[in-house]
Design a protein around this nucleic acid. Structure first.
Lengths: 208, 208
DNA sequence: GTCTATAAAGGGATAGAC
DNA sequence: GTCTATCCCTTTATAGAC
């Protein structure tokens, strides 16, 4: 039997190297500014190998970005928040949502997908479904459950979730996308989430 | 005296033709997908003429986009809304803000500026200052005046404006940017604005 | 300032050997 | 599948005449 290969090394087939390099470059520089030569160089393979696995630059890009979208599917297990007081639950959800939104990989994905949504409509759709749409439905689900159990008074969970998500996001992410600021500190994030939750509960909370 | 030239025709110097063509193409296709050849063709001039007026493609792009940013400076005269009931004023502001946000020129600018903000940091900044930042300060100004005259109870106008803008925007613009929908109808827009204003006034309106 | 023509480099994609 | 070498087109930018 052959000796066990070093466990730290990933399989590192040529195909995997190509995908990894393409993801790095496409996400960092976008579609137009990334050449197939650059991808081949970064992957340490020849350009012909690229084309052995992907028929064209557009196909490679589409595959990479589509896969990347799935990294941003927000998850929220009922057991994580449903047992908490509503204010605490919404605060946790808001913080986690904002942390995802301003993470470097998510910012790159936003940039690239928005830039190329006209040329690659399926990517715009895939990104929306995986990220923003899932966020909305997860949050609406929570609001609905909280209302059914008597902890909130939300008549239209989707609209309410839309408003809350909008407040969380506001311009915090946009400021980073536009390079106005480098990032958002925890203090600013928490202040913003708190203000949003306060306003939300003023409207949808139970009146004392 | 020479006969008056046809009034309908704009001056149409070569430089103006170049700027006009560049704006159309850059805003529609973005930086990478627009070639200087295409700009020259669209403008009806030679490529050498382009370079007689702009030293490089990057400089032309920067000049065009920087100028474009100023088209999206929201204005709000006090006389337009300060005499209205608060709910009516906020509703009008929200509708106007959303109409601007989902207008084709603004969508193009968002796409292009976000896509190129890493390579052209000054454009990200210029766009933010002209658009989102001005929106925020105009709205905060209104909230502050309304509070001072006793029609609202807003302690921190900037934070409150940030929340309200976030609710107005929510994912309506993003859905168009990503190509998930073609546009937003008046009915949906109004429903959304109403929900946002309702929630806002629940929190910041005067009680009792 | 404006044109035609062209230089110089880079890019996507492929042929053919192994 | 993978490589080297190359084709062929587009792109940015400029030279030189008018």
């Amino acid at each position: 039997m052959a000796p066990t290969p070093p466990a730290a090394e990933p399989p590192a087939t040529k195909a995997a190297l190509v995908v990894q390099a393409a993801r790095r470059l496409f996400m960092e520089r976008g579609y137009g500014a990334t050449s197939m030569d650059a991808v081949a160089l970064e992957a340490g393979v020849s350009k012909a190998t690229l084309y052995a696995h992907f028929a064209s630059k557009a196909e490679l890009f589409s595959a990479i970005v589509a896969a990347e979208c799935h990294r941003f599917v927000p998850t929220l297990d009922e057991s994580e928040v449903d047992h908490l007081p509503v204010r605490e639950a919404l605060t946790r959800i808001g913080r986690r949502f904002l942390d995802l939104l301003i993470s470097p990989p998510a910012l790159s994905a936003y940039r690239v997908v928005i830039a190329e949504a006209l040329r690659f409509p399926e990517l715009g759709r895939a990104f929306y479904d995986a990220g923003p749409a899932t966020t909305l439905s997860v949050l609406a689900g929570y609001l609905d459950r909280a209302t059914r159990r008597g902890d909130l008074a939300v008549k239209d969970p989707v609209t309410a979730a839309s408003l809350l998500v909008g407040m969380f996001r506001s311009h915090l992410q946009l400021r980073i996308l536009l390079g106005v600021v480098d990032g958002v500190g925890d203090a600013e994030r928490d202040h913003h989430v708190r203000a949003a939750v306060d306003l939300f509960l003023d409207g949808y909370g139970l009146r004392g």
